[in-house]
Simulated scan of single mutants.
Amino acid sequence: MSVPDLERLVTVTMPFGKYKGRLIADLPGHYLNWLAREGFPRGELGRLLALMHEMDHNGLKSLLDPLRKRE
């Protein structure tokens, strides 16, 4: 995990599915859990979704608040 990865969570939107257009940082926990069970997509998107899942699961979403305020 790096600062650019965290910045991407508050700038990249979900490109498909029920939550298309929503920031990765704003995806609901139940959806992230479902993706974790079904398998994350390949590439950068999957890596970011897995990171967001870990942050959500461990109660660390508030770490993104300072990055949101910079936008």
Score class of each variant (00 low, 15 high):
residue 67 L to C: 13
residue 55 M to D: 01
residue 5 D to N: 11
residue 65 D to C: 00
residue 21 G to Q: 04
residue 9 L to F: 03
residue 45 L to P: 09
residue 44 E to C: 03
residue 56 D to V: 06
residue 41 P to Y: 03
residue 6 L to K: 14
residue 30 H to V: 08
residue 54 E to K: 10
residue 10 V to H: 00
residue 65 D to K: 10
residue 10 V to Y: 00
residue 47 R to K: 15
residue 23 L to D: 03
residue 48 L to D: 01
residue 29 G to T: 07
residue 34 W to A: 10
residue 71 E to D: 04
residue 69 K to C: 04
residue 14 M to E: 11
residue 12 V to T: 12
residue 66 P to S: 05
residue 7 E to S: 01
residue 66 P to R: 05
residue 26 D to E: 15
residue 22 R to H: 14
residue 22 R to A: 11
residue 52 M to V: 04
residue 52 M to N: 08
residue 28 P to S: 06
residue 39 G to K: 07
residue 24 I to D: 03
residue 23 L to V: 07
residue 49 L to P: 02
residue 59 G to S: 05
residue 13 T to F: 03
residue 19 Y to G: 01
residue 15 P to F: 10
residue 45 L to S: 11
residue 68 R to P: 03
residue 43 G to S: 03
residue 37 R to A: 14
residue 58 N to T: 15
residue 18 K to Y: 02
residue 46 G to F: 00
residue 66 P to H: 06
residue 43 G to T: 03
residue 54 E to L: 13
residue 29 G to S: 10
residue 61 K to E: 14
residue 7 E to Y: 01
residue 20 K to W: 02
residue 18 K to N: 02
residue 8 R to T: 06
residue 41 P to Q: 03
residue 22 R to Y: 13
residue 31 Y to D: 07
residue 21 G to F: 04
residue 39 G to Y: 06
residue 34 W to K: 14
residue 39 G to E: 13
residue 45 L to I: 13
residue 62 S to Q: 15
residue 42 R to K: 15
residue 8 R to H: 13
residue 3 V to W: 08
residue 25 A to M: 05
residue 38 E to N: 11
residue 12 V to I: 14
residue 60 L to N: 08
residue 12 V to D: 13
residue 54 E to T: 04
residue 34 W to D: 12
residue 64 L to E: 11
residue 31 Y to S: 08
residue 26 D to R: 06
residue 17 G to E: 01
residue 65 D to Q: 11
residue 28 P to V: 10
residue 50 A to N: 12
residue 33 N to F: 06
residue 3 V to K: 08
residue 11 T to L: 15
residue 58 N to K: 15
residue 1 M to Q: 03
residue 39 G to Q: 07
residue 46 G to W: 00
residue 28 P to I: 10
residue 63 L to N: 01
residue 48 L to P: 06
residue 68 R to H: 06
residue 40 F to D: 00
residue 4 P to I: 01
residue 27 L to I: 11
residue 38 E to C: 06
residue 10 V to P: 00
residue 67 L to H: 13
residue 67 L to I: 14
residue 51 L to T: 12
residue 17 G to R: 00
residue 63 L to H: 08
residue 29 G to Q: 13
residue 66 P to W: 02
residue 8 R to I: 02
residue 7 E to L: 09
residue 18 K to R: 09
residue 67 L to Y: 12
residue 56 D to L: 05
residue 25 A to T: 02
residue 60 L to A: 04
residue 34 W to C: 07
residue 53 H to G: 02
residue 30 H to E: 07
residue 63 L to C: 06
residue 21 G to L: 12
residue 64 L to R: 09
residue 47 R to Y: 03
residue 30 H to A: 02
residue 12 V to F: 09
residue 60 L to P: 02
residue 30 H to Y: 14
residue 68 R to Q: 05
residue 21 G to V: 11
residue 61 K to M: 10
residue 7 E to N: 04
residue 68 R to L: 09
residue 51 L to I: 09
residue 23 L to M: 07
residue 18 K to W: 01
residue 20 K to L: 05
residue 18 K to F: 01
residue 47 R to F: 00
residue 6 L to T: 05
residue 14 M to H: 06
